[in-house]
Design a protein around this nucleic acid. Structure first.
Length: 276
DNA sequence: ACCCAGGCGACGA
DNA sequence: TCGTCGCATGGG
């Protein structure tokens, strides 16, 4: 059974799922993508460029509601309108034009916290490898994908919190292992709770995230943006720092402020693909 | 072999 | 408060 989400354009699945905001999607030979979301193995593809089809392989859990996927892909955000506003600035228009189909996903809070802890001083292919080892070693078997390959859920905070640094060495995550454990413990112990953070202001939620060992301004902002839907947050990493110095020396155009995180994705993509 | 990666915490000034 | 530096690991 499949879910269809209509009128999702603009959306480019490759640019959205492989751009470094999510780490568990892989592209299939037919242009569809398969990933594991909330323990469900899902394959997504775009029909006629404007309809998103989501097919879940039957596995350990009941399929997710259509509303879950609409939220995940941010179907409520009018990207065409946003791009029209952004494009009043010539430079930002150029960034948008390089990958107009990127959308900022609304991902699981805990998974976002841990994956972006892993992302620090790291590169995207290696982050994907560490995240996959994390799931294979500490997640649950949730079923086989279309190729017969067993897939695993992202581990729970409780499961990770019970592990030792020695246990985590199998991830080959380097010095990030301590940060993974602290993040997991704070979530497992109820210090950091998705629903509670959602009720706080962005600044207050950020302050709580910064108390996790290994979470600094950049990781906190990525968690706010990708894991808590705070689209006004603008994470600054090495690529963005370069791009801003080169393209926007006077700062981001004001008309992008309330959705700076969405603009950030266009700039990030442009920087990674166009700046040597 | 070499440089660097969606940074951070510790440390010293 | 602000610069500097070491950090684990491995992709390119």
């Amino acid at each position: 059974m499949a879910i269809i989400i209509d009128n999702i354009a603009p959306l480019n699945l490759r640019d959205t799922l492989l751009c470094g905001q999510a780490f568990r999607w892989v592209e299939n030979s037919d242009g569809s993508f398969t990933g594991v979301v909330q323990g469900r193995i899902a394959t997504v593809s775009l029909l006629d460029g404007c309809r998103l089809m989501v097919s879940e392989i039957s596995g350990k859990y009941e399929p997710l509601e259509k509303s879950y996927w609409e939220n995940y892909f941010a179907a409520d955000i009018d990207y065409a309108a946003l791009q029209e506003v952004y494009s009043k600035n010539k430079t930002l228009a150029k960034c948008v034009s390089h990958a107009p189909g990127i959308r900022v996903l609304r991902q699981d809070f805990f998974e976002t916290l841990i994956t972006f802890i892993i992302s620090q001083n790291n590169n995207i292919p290696r982050i994907q490898g560490i995240v996959e080892r994390l799931a294979e070693n500490f997640g649950d078997k949730v079923g086989s994908d279309d190729f017969g390959v067993m897939r695993y859920s992202f581990p729970s905070a409780e499961r990770l919190a019970a592990l030792s640094l020695q246990d985590l060495s199998i991830l080959r995550a380097g010095y990030r292992d301590k940060a993974i454990l602290d993040g997991a413990r704070q979530v497992a112990e109820g210090v950091l709770v998705d629903g509670e953070l959602s009720r706080l202001s962005t600044l207050e939620a950020r302050a709580k995230l910064l108390k996790v060992h290994g979470v600094g301004p950049k990781v906190a902002d990525c968690v706010l943006l990708f894991g808590l839907g705070r689209f006004e947050v603008f994470p600054v990493d090495v690529w963005i720092r370069r791009a801003m110095a080169m393209l926007f020396p006077k700062g981001l155009p004001k008309n992008a402020n309330s959705t700076a995180g969405i603009a950030q994705q266009y700039i990030f993509h442009y920087a990674r693909n166009s700046i040597k």
